[in-house]
Design a protein around this nucleic acid. Structure first.
Lengths: 341, 341
DNA sequence: TATAATAATGAAAGCGCTTACATTTTTCAA
DNA sequence: TTGAAAAATGTAAGCGCTTTCATTATTATA
């Protein structure tokens, strides 16, 4: 015991609420009140407690607080692979919002090698956070149903399920607008530079892509949809775009323009055109900051706004769990720049 | 009480170790053992417990576990602003490493509006994690000293302090190599497209930049160091690069080539050159994936590796706190591409 | 079959905090 | 001054787990 005390003293840490209470000559309840900014503490004792706490570097331990108060003051963001432009921007928006609140941010990264549902369920089961933001997590209807029972506030970003609040962009509409613009310019053979067609956003974008053909009455061919071979990050990479554009330029030279599934792929596509010494108009998707500086026409997704709004929504639900479920769908916007000149 | 029970039943959740123990007809100690994969539990009871847990969706609560075991199984990454290419890549490396371990990842974002030291100290005080990775967190010597007493495993990335393990890149050397390459090509007036000179990496890079002039014996002028006016993200943005290059092209037209402080600024610089219809060789810094596709010559920082290695280092320290402190410095590499052709 | 080992389980004491409720102190009107 | 109301503080019972140590069941050994 003595050993331990000496140890504590030397390292100046690992003190508990009891140590502070004792040194300040008050009860632990008072110390607790001070740290929880309760009103009913006299200024004198508040100062006394804080001074001592300051001196020994004391701060309530997160776990103990969480257990006792049944609150964690933490929001968990669940994402597949963090290093991706879309998530990064959305995360930026989340943080902008969180900056004015007292929540801690935990990021849970879904590992591609394990089952997504199990991992998501694990996050909920642990009850380590007040609420969750799921970014681009796609589950089956019945799986979403199973998650409902955990009764934890959840807001979905870039996904839809009627049991949870959601914030998404109309992917189909975005693809439609881009493609229609190209078709309306008099071009007849516009390609879609796709990523893995198993990916959800790609599926919706393909819908919009086809719809543009229908609406304009132009002849559609499945060969207009082309993807690269690399599957890393579902093909949403510079490389994926490069490969796909090479294909277009060599195998489908009849193609006159191209709608790309993401700006980052468009960058690869641009390079491919340059390497092949050819050039066709292209439109990207996302409007990442780069796009402006690369003169890339694109479909703007309000990524930051989505993160910001979803977070606001989640906080509202945490504070008022009976709030009606809301589905927010943003409409993407066509931004014209050099790449379609 | 009855109400609560019914409630629990309906929602199928919020059960505790006691509920499971009761239903399985064992003690809570046994349930605990099952969930902590202890050896000494018979296969029969293990199965019985797991079946029941599965049915009611039980899983130990993180806080209670943490409090009782004094372990959190969490690693905290502290970053200033998450949405930045460098951090994103480093984070990717961190996650690659963490995927094979059982640690949860918490990201703490330093808010620019509050004092950095206080925020960092807060993270340590809460003791919500086993160890921390600090990415590009720059403090004063004495502040680092103060943090040592918390006795929490910390690995610094992109910063150096002799009390903690650190993983960094020789910024000065990188700038030196880029600049020297340009100077060696026979150019005499090479500029540095800088970001905010208050930023640490910029300071080191300026050193390397000047050293190249010294070594080559060419005449250096302070006017060769130019930055944009926007201060968002310390100027490490496309916009910052654009502004700076416009300045170079208009105010300092004698400049023959340019070393840019980051690839992302180089993107802006490229655009500026295009807009001004001029072109000089440029070299970026970082080698983000984009650089290859934009044909940007650059200084490669092994960002992913740094994250990966730092994480490994941290885990080692968590497992063996007495391990000797190590400082790892990577040497950046010059990658030549079109932008210096 | 008896006994010693060994494996499986349980009882109970915390972990460091919050908080309802009880108690003491202070304030202030009469 | 006095007493009631208000403010400040204390007491103690958890929160849901882990873990030590004691106990019981099982297995192996002679």
């Amino acid at each position: 015991m003595k050993g331990i005390c000496v140890f504590k003293y030397i390292l100046n840490l690992a003190s508990t609420i009891y140590d502070i209470a004792e040194k300040a000559g008050v009860s632990i309840a008072t110390v607790s009140r001070v740290f929880n900014q309760r009103e009913n503490v006299s200024e004198r004792t508040r100062k006394k407690v804080m001074d001592i706490a300051e001196k020994v570097g004391y701060h309530p331990q997160a776990n103990a607080q969480g257990l006792a108060s049944r609150k964690t003051n933490t929001i968990t963001v669940v994402v597949p692979v963090i290093s991706n432009y879309f998530f990064m921007e959305v995360l930026g928006g989340i943080q902008d919002k969180l900056n004015s609140y007292d929540y801690e941010l935990t990021i849970f990264n879904i590992s591609p090698s394990k089952n997504t549902f199990d991992q998501v369920e694990h996050v909920l089961k642990r009850r380590a956070s007040e609420g969750c933001l799921f970014i681009s997590i796609h589950l089956e209807q019945e799986e979403w149903n199973l998650l409902e029972k955990y009764n934890i506030p959840i807001t979905l970003i870039d996904e839809y399920f009627d049991g949870f609040d959601s914030v998404s962009v109309d992917n189909s509409e975005g693809a439609f607008r881009a493609t229609k613009y190209l078709l309306d310019r008099g071009l007849d053979r516009v390609a879609m530079l796709s990523a893995l067609i198993t990916s959800k956003p790609i599926q919706s974008r393909i819908k919009g892509f086809k719809k543009a053909y229908e609406v304009t009455g132009k002849k559609f061919s499945n060969s207009y949809i082309v993807a690269g071979d690399s599957t890393y990050r579902d093909g949403f990479t510079e490389r994926g775009g490069y490969e796909a554009m090479i294909k277009i330029l060599t195998i489908n030279p009849e193609i006159q323009a191209c709608f790309c599934a993401s700006d980052i792929q468009a960058v690869g596509a641009l390079k491919a055109m340059q390497d092949m010494n050819k050039s066709i108009p292209i439109i990207g998707y996302d409007d990442i900051e780069l796009a402006e500086y690369m003169g890339l026409s694109t479909i703007r997704q309000p990524m930051r706004d989505m993160g910001f709004f979803a977070t606001q929504n989640l906080i509202e639900r945490i504070e008022n769990p009976k709030k009606a479920v809301s589905q927010t769908v943003y409409t993407p916007e066509l931004i014209l720049r050099d790449s379609t000149e």
